[in-house]
Nucleic acid binder design. Sequence first.
RNA 1: GCUGAAGUGGUGGAAUUGGUAGACACGUUGGACUUAAAAUCCAAUGGAUAGUAAUAUCCGUGCGGGUUCAAGUCCCGCCUUCAGUACCA
Length: 895
Amino acid sequence: MEYNFRSIEQKWQKYWYENKIYSTNNNSNLPKYYVLDMFPYPSGSGLHVGHPLGYIASDIISRYKRAKGFNVLHPMGFDSFGLPAEQYAIKTGQHPKVTTEKNIVRFKDQLNKLGLSYDWDREIKTSDSEYYKWTQWIFLKLYNSYFDKKENKAKNISELRIPDSLTKSEKNYFIDSKRLAYLDTIDVNWCEELGTVLANEEVIGGLSERGGFPVVRRPMKQWVMRITEYADRLIEDLDGLDWPDSIKASQKNWIGKSTGAEITFQIDDNNTIDVFTTRPDTIFGATYLVIAPEHPILKDIITNEQSEEIEDYCKNTLLKSDLERQENQKNKTGVFTGAYAINPLTEQKIPIWISDYVLYGYGTGAIMAVPAHDERDFEFAKKFNLRIIKVIKSDQDCYSGEGEIINSSNYNGLMSEDFKNIITTYLEKNKAAKKTTNYKLRDWVFTRQRYWGEPIPILHADEGTVGLDEKDLPLKLPEVDSYLPTSDGLSPLARNSEWKSVNINGKNFIRETNTMPQWAGSCWYYLRFLDPKNNDSFASKKNISYWMPVDLYIGGAEHAVLHLLYSRFWHKVLFDLGYVNTPEPFKKLVNQGMILGNSAFIYRKIDGKSYVSAEIASKYKTQRIHVDINYVNEKNELELELLKNNNSEFLNASFEFKDKFYVDREVEKMSKSKYNVVNPDDICEKYGTDTLRLYEMFLGPLEQSKPWNTAGISGVHNFLKKFWKLYFDSDSNLLVKDTDPSEISMKSLHKCIKKVSDDIESFSFNTAVSAMMILVNELTSQKCRSRNILEPLILIIYPFAPHISEEIWENLGNKKSIVYSKYPDFIDSYLQDNTKIYPVSINGKLKHKIELSLDLTKDQIEARILSDETILEKLNGIEPKRIIIVPGKIINFVI
RNA sequence: GCUGAAGUGGUGGAAUUGGUAGACACGUUGGACUUAAAAUCCAAUGGAUAGUAAUAUCCGUGCGGGUUCAAGUCCCGCCUUCAGUACCA
């Protein structure tokens, strides 16, 4: 019998699912291991070969850890609130719930086909009211907490000390201003096209992260999360985490902590202006000030003759989108206000300008400009002919590094690092400065004007806001007649006026109609997996203390700042309030690389109807367009008939080529619109899931991105066939015998056990697969039939290729499902080989090899090699200056 | 610009704390078995030179230096690619 992967895989997937083989017990004396995948958004297009990479890796770890005696939690769920379903709903009128459900069924089916060992009893969906009940509950916890700066942690709002002198409404106002989730009118990133606001993290270069639509700044009333209070802790706690350096770096970068000083500049008797600087040591070179056009002090200081010009400039700035503002980087603009400030050290009058290169949202919205030591200031000063004074020794016109202080009265000769502290202390004494820390991180704008998200459990009344009572959760998402925002820019939920107004004890309230952002549900889902059916709390204390933290979290690097920062923040709040027992949620993080597509391009002539082959395309004016990779063979030849028959737009087009029509290739992200998607189902159909799993692991290091390429897939498929043939002959007779294994086979086996288990622990799956291939090849050529070898072999391969392993295991007469079996222990003695082939070199150049016992001492080795004829011949009578002997490694003569 | 990662055969990729490159796989070539093909098995496979041959010698890990008995690995200076980020004072 041949290795019939189709029936084997079907059989075992069914068996695992029906018998709940992978359901996990919360009560166990075994050590725990929590392996988590970043759960997917169930998009309409299903899985492609890129998705499974991380899932397969985490599955291998789970199976391996189970076999090593851990109680493993390996759950899966769906991040099912989100924009695509809503946009589809706007287009088609179909309820997002319906399309989402449909997609989830498809996803689950595809996931199961990959042979993943999820505990489906713990499946969660963020759009489930039983789930978002607790998302809302956490929101209320944030709403009902404040940040105690002294203790550097969140506390319940009832512990907040309120000054007695306040009136009742002032007290309310005071409390509201301290909440971790608070309402504020702020300049937000408004995306007209999406009809919603976006968090800073969701805006990339002035365009929306999703869709790439323009974003403008606009003041709006929004719910905001006080994540900035956690900035320091979010940076500090990164140190203890086993995460990739790149992720840690981008989080630190995003939080953007910088320390410096706020220095006060006197303008006139009534007005002063504070600037933030990280370089107080350059203050003697500050020759002008620049303030942001939005700065409120502006109206108090402009002179009459400048007012018109300033007004124009400010108006223009407001009209610009972020993108347009960024385009001005090379060509700075600005206007003189007519006012002057006094440099507190030189006591000179320096002009005050406005310019949009100073951002109102960062620092104090005003800077002291030191053109000799800051490139932006330098450009600005050159353009507007402002004074430039060097205060640090350097040959360059504009030098932003550290160095020796010059032109700074009696401070000359100091080094700038020292001067920084000296001058700040001096200014502090004179009440002209204070040490400050600034962050790039802004508070998290938490509301979205959308339908398909968690409703915010808040009621509005004339005198302020009230959080919903816990017993009234979940606040379910109401039906609406249309999923579009209302004409006055309100969220779609405002369309349901019946739902919107509530009467409680005779008092009228209006519900909050905005919803939470997509990130809300994924901020804490790892906690719900611990206890998904719990009705009394988001998870029981007992389960939390048993399972947390997540030992291994696998997912894409695209969530480096967004998801991972937000969920760390929520986790820390829950930690402060005593609901979780660890300060950090994810102990180890691994980013799987992306699997890229190998796109194909053809060239269309500008006339629009004829196409030319790639090698002659440069002769014409052409457009480059994607063509489906399914119509291209390995030699980059386009199969025209296939293309024409499947796409009507090519049916009557003309094609120009020499003997074959060639395409161009390029590696890029897999996506439907690029026609380069490879569906894992096709691979499973042709080679089987076990082959796909092995191949994705064999392709290269997990963290590395790589193009999908099926060229080598036959290699791993052959490996499985060879593995099968170790156990069965062509007539399906079992070959395994209860004979004593040969010493050499035992050595090979144990070498492999060591290598594979070390490799799995260090996520080096590609080399683990190689080690298994070597063993199977060796056992084949050794004609090994011994059960004592062939049984452990199944267990080694099992985490990678579970279906075939289960099948062989059963055929050997073992209890059903390997999951109950132990990973073989590595026995040290089988590895011990008492001899070693030493390379013998002269001045580092390899000259000879010699086999020696490892027991020999250095002196014995020396005596031995000096009596070796071949070596003496190589030395050719030359007396070595030194002989370097590293036991077990090398012998080197220095002559 | 800044941050992070990476540059090794025709290809994907291996190489412990520096220890004497190219594991494993694909591909290619040759052979066996077949009427033939597929499948399977065996062998060779970084480059150059010399030799009938076993073999020997030299060159080889992006480029240029350096440290060392010994460098893909460490140090200095560059180049290239990818990813993230950017008027953050």
